Simulated scan of single mutants.
Amino acid sequence: MATRSPGRSASSARCCRPVTSWFACIGPRVWRFTADDIRCWADVLRAEICTAGLLAPEALLDLALAFHHAVRDDVPGYAATAALLGQRAGGDYAYYADIAAFMTNRPALLRSARWIEDESTVPGRCRHLVLARRSALES
């Protein structure tokens, strides 16, 4: 069954498995997803979120995908996700685009938030999360 969410191409919005089969993945295999599995899982979640008409979970899904692409050093995947986050630049979740940029050690284009800590601490922490996860996956 193919699902399509707004703003996504048909090829990136294809779903590899029916929704019900995703629940079977929760168990010992959950940390062994391939890149295609992650994209399909995200497409299923995005379709359900869009159907429900919720904005916050979709923004959080995009941030989680940005983290995934940053850890995997998947530049095209990150660019696509960053574009989705950039579409929210004027909304309540605009700072997610800043966090995603920090995770990949890129400068935030908008600087949509004032952070409680100094300007260098937050990007460093975001980048550290990515590097720590990458290191854990390599070992």
Rank of each mutant, 00 (worst) to 15 (best):
A108R: 05
W115I: 01
A24D: 13
P28S: 14
A132Q: 09
C126E: 09
G91N: 07
R4V: 12
L109V: 15
T34D: 05
E48Q: 13
G27M: 10
G7R: 02
A56Y: 09
L61N: 05
F23G: 07
L65V: 03
R134C: 01
A108Q: 06
G77S: 02
A35G: 11
S112K: 11
R32W: 14
R14G: 07
D62S: 12
F23A: 06
P28W: 10
R114P: 04
T34K: 05
L63R: 08
A100L: 09
V44S: 04
T51P: 01
R111N: 14
R106I: 08
A94T: 03
T20F: 13
T51D: 12
C25L: 12
A97T: 02
A132N: 03
T51H: 13
L84S: 07
P57T: 08
S5K: 01
I99R: 05
R134H: 13
C50T: 00
R127G: 04
F23C: 05
A10I: 00
C16V: 15
A89N: 12
A89M: 08
P18L: 13
E117R: 09
R133G: 03
D73S: 12
E119Y: 10
D37Q: 07
L109S: 15
M103P: 01
G53C: 02
G86V: 02
D62H: 15
W115M: 13
A2G: 02
T3C: 09
L129I: 02
D92N: 12
I26S: 01
S139T: 15
L129A: 07
V19D: 12
C40F: 01
R88M: 15
I38V: 12
M1T: 01
R72D: 03
P28Y: 06
T34S: 15
A108S: 14
A13M: 04
R4T: 07
A24F: 03
R88S: 10
E138H: 10
T3S: 09
R46G: 07
S9H: 02
S21I: 07
G124C: 06
M103L: 12
S112C: 12
F67A: 11
L85G: 05
D73F: 00
L110C: 08
V122T: 06
A24V: 11
A100I: 10
A47L: 11
C15Y: 04
L54P: 04
W41Y: 00
P6H: 14
C50L: 11
F67S: 08
A136S: 11
P18I: 07
Y93Q: 05
I49S: 00
H68D: 10
R4P: 07
R39G: 15
D98Y: 02
A82W: 00
D43I: 00
E119Q: 10
T81D: 01
V71H: 06
R46N: 09
E119P: 02
T51A: 12
S120N: 14
A70F: 01
V122D: 02
R14P: 00
Y96M: 12
V122N: 04
A64K: 11
D37I: 05
W115A: 13
F102L: 08
